[in-house]
């Protein structure tokens, strides 16, 4: 099925970058507000519904996760590895959004089950392009229910 208003969880330790992403997606026409996690541990807590994240009205389960790789506490690779072990969550779409364009990082992400790998663009225009593209894609791609 195609979700009209997908919830996107952005996982990045850089607050400025997250704010930029938020602004850009808003411009690109995203209606549903973005959800944020500041590092891998927080992302896992969010997805597990731990603590404050029990409230699924305020913190809905996402359909797509934009995942940075280089983060404190738990990094992107660890989140991916954990995620694909969770029966209730393993179908979640993960699009890695990283500063790294290293082949071994890309390979590792796909080995861990990432659905796509995007490199953070150097300028606003590039970011807009990615946001537009992503939203257009989500209007095409069928999502399977998580559980």
């Amino acid at each position: 099925m195609i979700l009209e208003n997908p919830t996107i969880l952005v996982v990045d330790d850089d607050d400025c970058a997250s704010l930029l992403v938020s602004t850009v997606f808003e411009r690109a026409g995203l209606v549903q507000p973005l959800q944020f996690a500041r590092d891998g541990a927080e992302a896992i807590a969010y997805l597990s519904g731990e603590g404050v994240y029990q409230d699924r009205v305020q913190y809905p389960l996402p359909t797509v996760m934009l995942l940075d790789l280089n983060m404190p506490r738990k990094n992107g690779f660890e989140v991916l590895a954990w995620l694909r072990q969770q029966p209730a969550l393993k179908r979640l779409h993960v699009y890695v959004l990283s500063a790294s364009s290293q082949d071994e990082d890309i390979r590792r992400c796909y080995d861990l089950g990432a659905n796509a790998y995007l490199v953070k663009p150097g300028n606003l225009e590039g970011l807009m392009q990615q946001a537009n593209c992503l939203l257009a894609w989500l209007k095409l791609s069928h999502i399977a229910p998580l559980a």
Binding site: C16, A99, L124
Partner: peptide, 14 residues
């Protein structure tokens, strides 16, 4: 160094 640069550049443009 690129990360804050992206933010600088992005917000300046916005």
């Amino acid at each position: 160094l690129r990360a804050p640069l992206r933010s600088m550049q992005g917000f300046a443009q916005l």
